[in-house]
Write a protein that binds this DNA or RNA. Structure first.
Lengths: 129, 129
DNA sequence: CGGGATCCAATGAGATACTG
DNA sequence: CAGTATCTCATTGGATCCCG
């Protein structure tokens, strides 16, 4: 992803600068599981096993990777209670909550335009039979 | 993606219903190229070659696939001017513009919290040296 | 110019088994 | 319970060549 100074006259929406800044967030939001986990945590802290049951369909591997990644980005916290058996709780950080707000905004868009998109697809597929 | 009625007592944020409705949008937004293309088109119609130069880094294959997919979902239009050489313009549909608004909202979030995330990563990586 | 078709490498992600 | 490790397969995506 080497980026070169934009020398185009009609600056193309400064793809060069915006792209790099966006990539991190988009990879986060675009990740199939990250947003689902964040949506769950938006309602309050959850344990590892709670998340695994709630997300339903996620593998242990992916849940762990997703949580690690979110934690690394400072979007969630991981708190261990060293009882036996151990207990681990995950929760959104303040910044994580602000992203969750954006995500829920996207969710509303999805609900409102779901039918439109579904219809557009039927139309398109029919046209290119 | 088989989904089963949720029988859990403490309904887990209805992952079952929300998930399916979300998936389409998230796959769209999460797609590395779709959002970049939409961001460019938010400033007005663009030709195929303009997009390819502007996005910079995208291959012909992916640009074509991205455009087809966006068109299929009714988010952009494709208009051919049968001159020689041919000219093809892409533009956002009204619904596409509403999604572009959401995306630009995400872009603002990215700008505002970019430093935070970068810092969090350095921190995390340092802790787990 | 605006693609379509094909081949191939990299990544993503599920299944399974094992551990403190 | 809350993971880690490995193996494997499916998908993504770049490179290349070709066409109307």
């Amino acid at each position: 992803m080497t980026r070169v100074p934009n020398t185009d006259v009609r600056e193309p929406v400064n793809a060069a600068t915006d792209t790099c800044q966006l990539r991190d967030v988009l990879d986060r939001v675009g990740d199939k599981w990250s947003v689902l986990v964040m949506a769950l945590l938006a309602d309050g802290p959850r344990r590892y096993s709670e998340l695994q049951r709630a997300v339903d369909g996620i593998s242990q591997r992916m849940l762990t990777l997703t949580l690690r990644s979110l934690e690394r980005d400072g979007l969630i916290t991981r708190s261990v209670t060293p009882t036996s058996p151990p207990r681990v709780d995950y929760a959104l950080t303040p910044v994580g909550e602000t992203l969750a707000v954006e995500v829920s905004s996207l969710m509303r868009w999805a609900e409102q335009h779901r039918a439109y998109v579904a219809n557009a697809r039927l139309w398109y597929d029919a046209s290119n039979s």
